[in-house]
């Protein structure tokens, strides 16, 4: 609660690192269709400036150490949003030899957004849920 959490929830900066196909439904959010800057969400190039890591889709074995590295470089408090079925359970690639099936084994995830890829409305719903969680006093990781 309180002003600290309220302001935190209104300035979520996202790291500009979108792993896979889930990113395509973030385009309407970046573009003028939904415009995420209304929520105070900005895409940032450096992990040191970012608060939110969006895992947009499948994570391969090769990409996992890099994502962990980015996650570790982000300053606390940090939040993680997972888009799509792939990070959740493996999704489409549940029997692929090269992708990670459960991302929460490696990185804690705060909000899960389902869909393949999730509709932009659903992503917005997830972002609003994350904002609500922070407003209600969630301290992040």
């Amino acid at each position: 609660m309180g002003i600290k959490h309220k302001t935190r929830a209104r300035s979520l900066w996202v790291i500009n690192y979108f792993t896979a196909c889930g990113f395509i439904e973030l385009l309407p959010w970046v573009g003028s269709g939904y415009d995420m800057e209304r929520f105070g969400i900005l895409a940032k190039g450096s992990p040191r400036h970012a608060d939110v890591l969006i895992i947009a889709g499948y994570v391969t074995k090769k990409a996992l150490p890099r994502i962990k590295r980015i996650y570790e470089q982000m300053p606390s408090p940090k939040y993680v949003l997972a888009l799509g079925s792939c990070p959740m359970t493996g999704g489409m690639y549940w029997d692929s030899y090269s992708t990670i099936k459960r991302i929460d084994k490696y990185i804690p995830v705060d909000v899960w957004v389902t869909g393949c890829p999730p509709k932009p409305e659903n992503i917005g719903h997830g972002l609003v849920m994350l904002m609500k969680k922070i407003e209600n006093g969630f301290e992040g990781h």
């Binding site: 090769k62 150490p65 493996g90 030899y97 990670i100 099936k101 084994k105 490696y106």
Partner: peptide, 23 residues
């Protein structure tokens, strides 16, 4: 690949993924 995946990911006793060193 299904055998491999079962062994590698769905077997709870298997160890965690090794981490790479580059960035």
């Amino acid at each position: 690949t299904r055998e491999y995946v079962k062994r590698e990911y769905y077997d709870e006793s298997s160890s965690e993924q090794k981490e790479g060193g580059c960035f």
